[in-house]
Design a protein around this nucleic acid. Structure first.
Lengths: 76, 76
DNA sequence: CGGCGAAGTCAAAAAACTTTGACATGATGT
DNA sequence: ACATCATGTCAAAGTTTTTTGACTTCGCCG
């Protein structure tokens, strides 16, 4: 699988919102626990739709939850 | 395919940036023309990574390029 | 100790996204 | 009229994301 360059603040946001568990978050956005785990760990970048749903649960903007590096210079 | 609820302003942004063509945009973000067409028409929502690349080409924030409806009331 | 909840791993199948290539249409220019 | 460019459609193959289910680990409570 292609590693993703997108990182996120989901873990912090979960704790900042009343110790919300991964399973809770998964239920709220209508996906499985597996998906939350994988995204939280940055295994791959989610679909834009899911990203919107996650951001909405936390009442945050997309750029507040997900970060994309500058891509200036990276030559893997 | 699942229809997406995410809309976007790509078409306007392309014109606002010097008549950039779909092929131009596709080249700049490293995808095919097909993908740009499909996303611009809202056939499906792109990956978050691609969304970031598109926004970056236009120098805009994600929420400036893509919109997600309120989802209050929809019961398909 | 034994049980429970939260987090994590693995693998295989399903669904969604992306690419490839071939072709059609309308507008523009020569 | 003919060529060209931008846009669009269709379908099949390829890749990434999401689901399903079974199984582990750690910390905590009773």
């Amino acid at each position: 699988m292609k590693p993703t360059r997108v990182t996120n603040s989901i873990r912090s946001l979960r704790f900042a919102h009343g110790q919300m568990t991964q399973a809770d978050l998964a239920n709220r956005i209508g996906v499985t626990r597996q998906t939350v785990i994988a995204i939280e760990q940055g295994r791959y970048s989610p679909s834009l739709e899911m990203a919107f749903q996650i951001a909405r649960v936390f009442g945050a903007a997309l750029d507040d939850v997900f970060q994309y590096p500058d891509s200036t210079g990276e030559t893997p």
